[in-house]
């Protein structure tokens, strides 16, 4: 088999708050290949988002190894982590996080105007329109988020995640604020990215959406275990 896209081994994260230290992740291991989709389910507070933060280089594990394309990246300095986030990762959040004062196209372009290289305006526009087209809302490019439905806003967020053609797509409860039908459409849009070789890690509470991923992993008591696999 090919080299895994992502390989976590023995990831541990302990939260040191005002109370006693609490182990959130306890030796978590995870392997994701290019074009593979993985759902992570678990109860609230089980550490799903913490795991996603570590996967997305927002946070560092206390111990363990994180390989991306075989390269250890768990201890990267912030400058390099930012560069990697820009070039290899796409993020979709439950709350869309669109900027109200920008149009859909400008919100998508935000991922291109981030100080990691420079694209001339024309090329930027082409990339943005391609990304919006991928999620089927190119016609809403000039609309502001306030004039869009929840599903449309989440599609803009997905377009923003896809505009740099990422290797890994991390989605944290992307359907949490949407109705069933719209949520299903969003999952379709995310799944489509895996057909282009992108690895998808979806954190969700929704068992139906999880079932549409290639594998389902459950996080409980800091331990990640596989609970389902779809065989092609």
């Amino acid at each position: 088999m090919n080299q895994p896209l992502i390989e976590l081994t023995g990831i541990t994260k302990i939260l040191k708050g005002q109370e006693e230290p609490r182990t959130i992740l306890d030796g978590v291991g995870l392997t994701v290949h290019a074009g593979e989709s993985v759902a992570i389910v678990g109860r609230s507070g089980s550490g799903k988002s913490t795991l996603l933060s570590i996967l997305g280089l927002f946070d560092r594990p206390d111990s363990g190894s994180y390989l991306l394309d075989g390269q250890e990246i768990s201890r990267l300095p912030e400058r390099k982590a930012a560069k990697l986030r820009s070039s290899h990762y796409g993020f979709v959040f439950q709350r869309f996080f669109l900027l109200k004062h920008l149009t859909a196209a400008q919100n998508v372009a935000m991922a291109l105007v981030n100080g990691q290289g420079w694209l001339p305006r024309r090329q930027r526009r082409v990339r943005v329109m391609e990304a919006l087209d991928l999620v089927g809302i190119a016609h809403l490019a000039k609309n502001r988020p306030t004039k869009m439905s929840g599903g449309e806003q989440q599609r803009v967020a997905i377009a923003r995640a896809l505009v740099r053609d990422p290797r890994v797509l991390l989605a944290d409860e992307p359907t949490g604020a949407l109705d069933t039908e719209t949520g299903a459409a969003v999952i379709d849009a995310l799944s489509a990215a895996t057909h282009r070789g992108c690895g998808l890690i979806l954190v969700t509470h929704d068992r139906d959406h999880a079932a549409r991923m290639g594998r389902t992993l459950s996080l409980a008591n800091g331990v990640l275990t596989e609970t389902g696999r779809v065989h092609a």
Partner: peptide
């Protein structure tokens, strides 16, 4: 925070 998430460095 979102800008940092999409790769914007702290300096920027």
């Amino acid at each position: 925070a979102l800008r940092r998430a999409v790769g914007t460095p702290r300096t920027l």
